[in-house]
Measured scan of single mutants.
Amino acid sequence: HMTFVALYDYVASGETDLSFKKGERLQIVNNTEGDWWLAHSLTTGRTGYISSNYVAPSD
């Protein structure tokens, strides 16, 4: 899985979204569905959809 880092804080707007904080590391589970990616937070252990605009590759 690809690992990304959050560029900004994000508060989930629905049950399927994932809230995260700036600097949080996220593993991308599925990024084939446009701008919203299914991600797993390595910080909180939660999984949900994130906006690809809010993250950048961590490598």
Rank of each mutant, 00 (worst) to 15 (best):
H1L: 13
H1Y: 13
H1S: 12
H1R: 06
M2D: 08
M2Y: 10
M2E: 10
M2Q: 13
M2A: 10
T3K: 04
T3F: 14
T3V: 15
T3A: 06
T3C: 11
T3W: 13
F4I: 04
F4A: 04
F4Q: 01
V5R: 02
A6E: 00
A6C: 08
A6W: 01
A6V: 11
A6P: 00
L7Y: 04
L7A: 03
L7G: 02
Y8A: 09
Y8W: 10
Y8L: 09
D9P: 03
D9I: 05
Y10S: 05
Y10Q: 02
V11N: 10
V11Q: 11
V11I: 12
V11H: 11
V11R: 07
A12N: 04
A12Q: 05
A12V: 04
A12K: 05
A12F: 03
A12L: 02
A12C: 05
S13F: 11
S13R: 13
G14Q: 14
E15C: 11
E15H: 10
E15F: 07
T16A: 12
T16N: 14
T16E: 12
T16F: 15
T16K: 14
D17E: 15
D17V: 08
L18T: 03
L18P: 05
L18N: 01
S19W: 04
S19T: 09
S19P: 04
F20W: 01
F20L: 06
K21E: 09
K22G: 03
K22V: 06
K22E: 06
K22Y: 05
G23Q: 01
G23F: 04
G23W: 05
E24D: 13
E24A: 03
E24F: 06
E24M: 01
R25F: 15
R25D: 05
R25K: 13
Q27T: 11
Q27K: 09
Q27R: 11
Q27D: 07
I28N: 05
I28V: 11
I28A: 11
I28C: 08
I28M: 06
V29A: 06
V29K: 07
N30Y: 10
N30P: 06
N30D: 14
N31T: 13
N31M: 15
N31I: 13
N31D: 10
N31C: 14
T32Q: 12
T32V: 10
E33G: 12
E33N: 14
E33Q: 14
G34D: 08
G34Y: 06
D35E: 13
W36F: 11
W36M: 13
W36C: 14
W36L: 13
W37H: 02
L38E: 04
L38F: 10
A39V: 14
A39R: 00
A39E: 01
A39N: 01
H40A: 07
H40E: 08
H40Q: 12
H40M: 15
S41P: 00
S41F: 02
S41I: 02
S41E: 01
S41N: 13
L42F: 08
L42A: 05
L42M: 08
L42D: 05
T43P: 01
T43V: 11
T44H: 02
T44L: 01
T44D: 03
T44K: 00
G45L: 05
G45K: 05
G45V: 02
R46I: 07
R46H: 09
R46V: 06
T47S: 08
T47H: 07
T47C: 11
T47I: 09
T47Y: 11
T47F: 10
T47R: 07
G48H: 03
Y49I: 05
Y49P: 00
Y49C: 10
I50N: 01
I50C: 02
I50P: 00
I50H: 00
S51N: 15
S51T: 07
S51H: 15
S52F: 07
S52M: 12
S52L: 10
S52E: 05
S52Y: 07
S52G: 07
N53M: 14
N53E: 13
N53S: 14
N53D: 12
Y54N: 07
Y54K: 06
Y54L: 13
Y54W: 09
Y54S: 14
V55L: 09
A56C: 11
A56V: 14
P57E: 08
P57M: 10
S58C: 14
S58V: 15
D59N: 12
